[in-house]
Amino acid sequence: MAVVMCLPSITPQIMTDLPMALDKDTVQRIARLARIKVPETELESLAGELDNILGWIEQLNEVDTADVAPMTSVVEMDLPRRDDVVTDGGYPEKVLANAPDADRGYFTVPKVVE
């Protein structure tokens, strides 16, 4: 569900920002923004695959939706709310359990200098 809902909103931005047919550079840029390492040799084929997906989504534009409000959920419900009460936290050891290099209660990462 999540994937289906977010794709149409991504598409217009990619369409306006990027050339219609995806080239290698664009694929590389998308990969870098997503922090996915893609070997140079795979860029070409990936561009073709992504192009196909975009083309498939493009078909949705054939339907006239001018008078249709965007569907945000398949169930009739309001956004659930929570009261302002502290009910969670207090377990730094659980939060840090998967951190490869935690120190004195902190996550640590290679130096990020500004």
């Binding site: 302002d84 009460v85 009910t87 969670d88 936290g89 730094p92 939060v95 209660g105 902190y106």
Partner: peptide, 27 residues
Amino acid sequence: VSDAKLFSGASTAFGAAPNSQVSLVDA
């Protein structure tokens, strides 16, 4: 100004020990 965070039940109090006011949602 609120006691808990925007999308989780962890506390917003200032100055607590590191990562002690973090829910699994925040992480």
